[in-house]
Simulated scan of single mutants.
Amino acid sequence: MLTKRPLLLLATGLLGGYAAAAQTPDAPPAAKAAAMSEQEVLFWLLLSLLGLLLLVLLLTGIVITRQMKPQLRQLYDLPLVHDTWSGRVLGLLVGDARLVQGDVRDELLDHNYDGIHEFDNDLPPWWKYGFYATIIFAVGYLAYYHVLKTGQLQGAEYAAEMQQAALLIAATPDDPNLLTTYQPLLVPAELSSGKAIFATNCAPCHGASGEGKIGPNLTDEFWLHGGEVNHIYKTIKFGINGKGMVAWKGKLSGKQILQVSSYVLSLQGTKPANAKPPQGEKEAVGKAVAKL
């Protein structure tokens, strides 16, 4: 008894600790069970019952077919049944795979070449029916899209989707397809704010004086995406995909973007040192001029 008692106490302690741990909120199984709603439980229960019912029906069908195989064979051998479509389906139940393999299997032809015999086998009926179905589909496709022109081809469908997308975008306040109607800011305080924003966010790519580095020179009369203040505003706000110009929408407010756009126009004709060669098309635009 002195030997068994410590073992019983140890086992009792382990079981008690395990039960307490199982009741803690951190236990994943309990949390998962609590997270499952009654509808989910009912869904999985019904799905399990349906699967069980289908399994029972399948097993019952197999048992009935095996027991009735002699009677089915007699029915299959009848001349009126043997060569019909339903008879071929019935043949699958009695071991005749003509419906899948075809009527002719491994029939030796009466000629050979260099001792090589040639067999004549039917194409599988399922393959032939599938091929016939593709022919019917091709004729219907040709008539629907190219003869009657009822359906839209890829190009027309893409154009229609793009038009619909443009309408959806136009319904939002931030439509990249529509230009704003702002005027350049001329107040020195506004341009000073634009200069500070430019120095923080734009100078790494366009240079501290707008001379151009990775990005284009902003001090000449050549522009890649338009040099009018609203074009500059659009470029800054929405960016240029694939050109390295990021969209500042969401990072800068509308007023800040207009301040930067106006400051960029104030750089026209400043001719900084080490200016990057012109890029884009020449465009004479008005600039915001103010003494900073």
Rank of each mutant, 00 (worst) to 15 (best):
Cys205Asp: 00
Ser192Pro: 02
His206Cys: 04
Glu157Tyr: 12
Thr150Glu: 11
Asn177His: 12
Gln183His: 10
Pro173Trp: 09
Val246Glu: 06
Thr172Pro: 01
Ser193Lys: 11
Thr219Met: 00
Ala203Lys: 00
Ile214Ala: 07
Phe222Met: 04
Trp223Asn: 09
Asn201Gln: 10
Gln164Tyr: 12
Thr181His: 13
Ala171Leu: 06
Glu221Met: 11
Gly244Asp: 00
Ile236Trp: 01
Asp175Met: 03
Met245Ile: 13
Asp175Tyr: 02
Ile240His: 01
Gln154Gly: 10
Gln154Ile: 12
Ala247Lys: 00
Gly151His: 07
Lys243Trp: 12
Leu148Met: 11
Ala171Gln: 14
Ala170Val: 04
Ile240Glu: 06
Val187Ser: 08
Glu221Ile: 07
Ala165Cys: 07
Val229Ala: 01
Gly207Tyr: 02
Gly194Glu: 01
Thr181Leu: 14
Ala247Asn: 04
Ile236Asn: 08
Ser209His: 10
Leu153Pro: 08
Trp223Cys: 05
Lys149Cys: 09
Ala166Tyr: 06
Met162Thr: 11
Glu190Leu: 08
Trp223Gly: 03
Leu179Gln: 08
Asn230Arg: 04
Pro204Asn: 05
His206Thr: 07
Val147Gly: 07
His206Met: 04
Leu168Pro: 02
Ala189Arg: 10
Gln164His: 14
Ala159Tyr: 08
Leu218Cys: 05
Gly194Thr: 06
Ser192Phe: 08
Gln163Ile: 10
Val246Arg: 13
Gln152Ser: 11
Thr150Ile: 13
Ala203Ser: 13
Ala203Leu: 01
Val246Ile: 11
Phe238Thr: 00
Glu190Ala: 13
Lys243Phe: 11
Gly210Tyr: 03
Asn201Leu: 13
Val246Gly: 06
Ala165Gln: 14
Met162Gln: 15
Thr200Gly: 08
Thr235Cys: 04
His231Ser: 14
Met162Arg: 11
His206Trp: 06
Gln163Phe: 13
His225Leu: 10
His225Cys: 07
Leu179Asp: 10
Gln164Glu: 14
Ala166Gly: 09
Phe222Glu: 03
Gly155Ile: 15
Glu157Pro: 02
Leu167Gln: 15
Ala171Pro: 02
Ile232Arg: 04
Ala208Pro: 04
Val147Met: 12
Glu190Thr: 09
Lys149Phe: 06
Gly210Glu: 02
Ile236Arg: 04
Pro173Cys: 08
Tyr182Pro: 03
Pro188Met: 09
Asn217Glu: 08
Ala196Asn: 14
Tyr158Arg: 15
Asn217Leu: 04
Lys234Leu: 10
Ser209Ile: 06
Pro204Phe: 01
Asn217Asp: 15
Thr172Met: 14
Glu228Val: 05
